[in-house]
Simulated scan of single mutants.
Amino acid sequence: MAPSPPQTGQRARGALLGLALGDALGMPTQGLPFEEVRARYGPLLTQLHPAPADHEIAAGLPAGRVTDDTDQALLLARLLLAGHGEVDQHRLAADLLAWEDAMRAAGSLDLLGPSTRRALDAVAAGAPVGTSGRWGDTDGAAMRIAPFGIAHPLGQLGAFVQGVHRAGRVTHDTGIAVAGAAAVAAAVSAAVDGADLAEATDLAIEAAHLGATLGHHVGGADVAARIGWALDVVAEHRLDGGLELVDELVGTGVATQEAVPAAFAVLALTPDDPWLTVRAAASLGGDSDTIAAMAGAIAGALHGADAFPADATRQLLAANPALADPGTGLTALADDLLALRLGGTAR
Rank of each mutant, 00 (worst) to 15 (best):
A212T: 00
H165P: 10
H209Y: 12
R169Q: 15
A186W: 05
A200D: 03
D193K: 06
L203T: 09
A177Q: 05
I205W: 05
G175L: 08
V178K: 04
A190Y: 09
A181P: 05
A185D: 10
D173M: 08
G180I: 03
L203P: 05
S189G: 13
A190R: 11
A179Y: 04
D196W: 03
L210G: 05
S189P: 09
A181W: 02
A183V: 02
V184P: 08
A207T: 03
I205Y: 03
A182M: 09
V164P: 06
D202K: 07
D193F: 08
A179L: 04
H209K: 14
R169Y: 12
R169V: 12
A186M: 01
V170N: 06
H172Y: 11
G168D: 11
D173L: 06
G163H: 07
V164H: 03
L210E: 11
A195S: 14
G211H: 05
R166C: 13
A185T: 01
A208L: 01
A181T: 02
A187N: 05
A167S: 15
E199T: 15
V192C: 14
D202N: 13
D193M: 12
T174R: 00
G180L: 03
A212E: 13
A167D: 02
L197E: 13
I176N: 05
V188C: 13
G175Y: 04
A208K: 00
L210V: 04
D196C: 09
E206W: 06
G175N: 01
A185V: 07
R166S: 14
A186F: 09
V184F: 13
T201E: 05
L203Y: 04
G175I: 01
E206V: 12
H165Y: 15
D196A: 10
V184S: 10
D193A: 15
A181Q: 03
V192M: 12
A208E: 00
T174M: 02
A200K: 00
G211Q: 02
V192S: 08
G163C: 09
A179S: 14
H209N: 11
A204E: 06
A190C: 07
E199W: 10
A179G: 12
G168Q: 15
L210A: 13
I176P: 06
T171R: 04
G168F: 04
L210S: 06
E199G: 14
A185M: 10
T174V: 01
A207S: 05
A204I: 01
V188F: 10
L203G: 13
G180H: 00
A186P: 06
G180S: 05
T174S: 04
R166V: 09
A207F: 02
L197N: 07
A183L: 02
A207Q: 02
A181N: 06
A187E: 00
A183K: 00
